[in-house]
């Protein structure tokens, strides 16, 4: 399964907002991961796209600003 869907040139996470394991796996393989500020962390995986400052939430998922 691909982790990303291209929408208008943007890389949108295919797992939506509830795929915690996939978000952790993707971030663990990403050299750009950088933890967002404490108030914006949403899961307790130390490294996860959901906690990354380069994810931009959309209505149903997030887009990665580094892809």
């Amino acid at each position: 399964m691909t982790d990303w869907i291209k929408e208008n040139g943007k890389a949108v996470f295919a797992g939506g907002k509830g795929s915690f394991e996939d978000a952790a796996r993707v971030a663990s393989q990403c050299s750009c991961f950088s933890e967002d500020c404490e108030d914006e962390l949403v899961c307790d995986d130390a490294i996860s796209c959901y906690n990354c400052r380069y994810r931009r939430w959309t209505a149903t998922s997030f887009e990665c600003m580094k892809r």
């Binding site: 899961c43 995986d45 959901y50 939430w57």
Partner: peptide, 11 residues
């Protein structure tokens, strides 16, 4: 707890 893994999401 501040974060409850896999049970909720914020947005």
């Amino acid at each position: 707890p501040k974060i409850k893994k896999n049970k909720e999401k914020k947005q």
